[in-house]
């Protein structure tokens, strides 16, 4: 596999996973940017474990997940039922503080970053395939979990909380518990993503964990659509991939393009391109097709 393709596939998977991590708490209107800080904290910790303590990658990855979960849970205890803007600002301050701490900690390379992470399984090729396998395995698993969540009682409760927290509380739904659950889930995911992200490039640099990445994730879920997980799945590769095809002069303005796109979509299609209604339409279309034919035939071929 060529190196650019590997990077594209791997980064796309990370973007999908991270956008989902943002998507899940946003189901109840929590725009939880703590996940970006989680990525950095878990990633640097895992890198430190591998580089300085010579622990195996698997253990470091596990530690990344656990660290994300613990931090996410601890923070969620306070802001599980906080208003949206408070959740946003907590995430941002966390990112800022994490960056400052990392910048000033020599053990993790400070402003220089961490380099020279080992290949998993010895050779570069095995390393790439392992990373891709783990990432896309996670995409499948997390996608399945979120799909189940969206179609569960909890998912419906989250949608209600998105529109009106007070009303939802009066229906006997514990908003705080739900917030804690969703936030912890997304932080756990983000922790693992942080570790994997570092191992894609085999290095860590603080330049990634900035407000830029916040902007990209936000654009992905708002352009793709925040009411269903499919929008993200589609928007993440497109929004990351298309600017790669631009000439460098244009590509360097991609954050401006993202910002403009975000604003345009919010004005014209407030729920994003892929909405629950759209998905519902496709589902009923498919089931109608299936109703006419036996499920195993390929409907497209005989048209």
């Amino acid at each position: 596999m060529s190196l650019p393709l590997y990077y594209f596939l791997a980064i796309t998977a990370v973007n999908i996973l991270m956008s989902w991590a943002l998507y899940v708490p946003y189901r109840m209107a929590h725009l939880h940017f703590l996940i970006v800080a989680n990525m950095a904290i878990s990633g640097y910790t895992a890198a430190y474990m591998v580089l300085s303590l010579h622990l195996p990658f698997g253990l470091a990855l596990l530690a990344g997940f656990v660290l994300g979960a613990v931090i996410g849970f601890a923070v969620a205890l306070f802001i599980g039922d906080a208003p949206t803007f408070a959740v946003v600002i907590v995430g941002f301050t966390f990112i800022y503080i994490t960056r400052t701490v990392i910048e000033n900690t020599e053990a993790v390379g400070g402003t220089m970053g961490l380099f020279g992470l080992p290949n998993i399984g010895g050779s570069p090729s095995v390393h790439r395939w392992t990373i891709l396998a783990i990432l896309y395995g996670l995409v499948a698993l997390v996608g399945f979990l979120i799909h189940r969540f969206d179609h569960s009682q909890l998912g419906r409760a989250a949608s209600a909380a998105f529109i009106d927290k007070d009303l939802t509380t009066s229906l006997g739904i514990d908003i705080k518990k739900m917030g804690i659950l969703l936030q912890t889930f997304s932080c756990t995911l983000a922790g693992g993503c942080g570790v994997l992200y570092g191992f894609i490039y085999k290095s860590f640099h603080l330049d990634y964990f900035t407000f830029h990445v916040v902007g990209i994730l936000m654009t992905v879920i708002f352009v793709g659509g925040y009411t269903t997980l499919w929008g993200t799945l589609l928007a993440a590769p497109v929004l990351y991939g298309v600017p790669l095809l631009f000439p460098p002069e244009v590509a360097s303005w991609r954050i401006v393009i993202y910002g403009a796109l975000l604003i345009i979509v919010l004005v014209l299609k407030p729920e994003g391109f892929i909405t629950t209604r759209f998905v519902y339409g496709i589902e009923s279309f498919l089931s109608r097709k299936r109703g006419k034919r036996t499920p195993l035939t390929k409907p497209q071929e005989d048209v």
């Binding site: 902007g215 401006v256 993202y258 975000l262």
Partner: peptide, 26 residues
């Protein structure tokens, strides 16, 4: 974005403002 003046819309204005911030910073 603020047309309906509900809680959801206020959150959207925040996201939109962040979009404006992204553009300005870049």
């Amino acid at each position: 974005v603020m047309e309906k003046r509900g809680e959801v819309d206020i959150n959207s204005t925040m996201v939109m403002s962040m979009g404006i911030g992204m553009i300005i910073t870049d």
